[in-house]
């Protein structure tokens, strides 16, 4: 039977425009899903988040997957090495900087 673990990496975490989630070690897992939930956003506020990989949990590189949402969404990721995080921004409908409160749950299996 495979191992499974969901980490609530960010719980109702307020971010001021720039968003970076906690570096999460998950080299044991073969596959991951990032679940992203935006809490009580101002109308039109959206977050755009890039999946990032890292050799060491310090230096981050875009993996290629991008999530955009005004409410909830998810992204599947595989073949990601040892570390994962999301990085991006919260923006108003007109493109201006916004703050956002976000929960991020990382479901891992391997």
């Amino acid at each position: 039977m495979k191992t499974f673990y969901t980490s609530v990496v960010e719980l109702r975490q307020p971010f001021d425009h720039a968003i970076e989630t906690h570096p999460y070690e998950c080299g044991w897992a073969d596959e991951a899903i990032f679940f992203v939930e935006l809490h009580d956003p101002e109308p039109g506020t959206a977050v755009e988040l890039r999946v990032q990989v890292s050799p060491d949990g310090i230096r981050w590189i875009d993996e290629g997957t991008v999530l955009t949402t005004t409410s909830t969404t998810f992204a599947r990721v595989s073949h990601f090495g040892g570390f994962l995080r999301l990085a991006g921004t919260a923006r108003q409908a007109d493109g201006g900087a916004a703050s956002a409160t976000v929960s991020v749950r990382l479901a891992l299996k391997g």
Binding site: S7, H22, E25, C26, W28, P55, D56, R59, F83
Partner: peptide
């Protein structure tokens, strides 16, 4: 958060 680590460094 808590995680399983391989203690990997740069």
């Amino acid at each position: 958060p808590t995680m399983l680590s391989s203690a990997t460094f740069a």
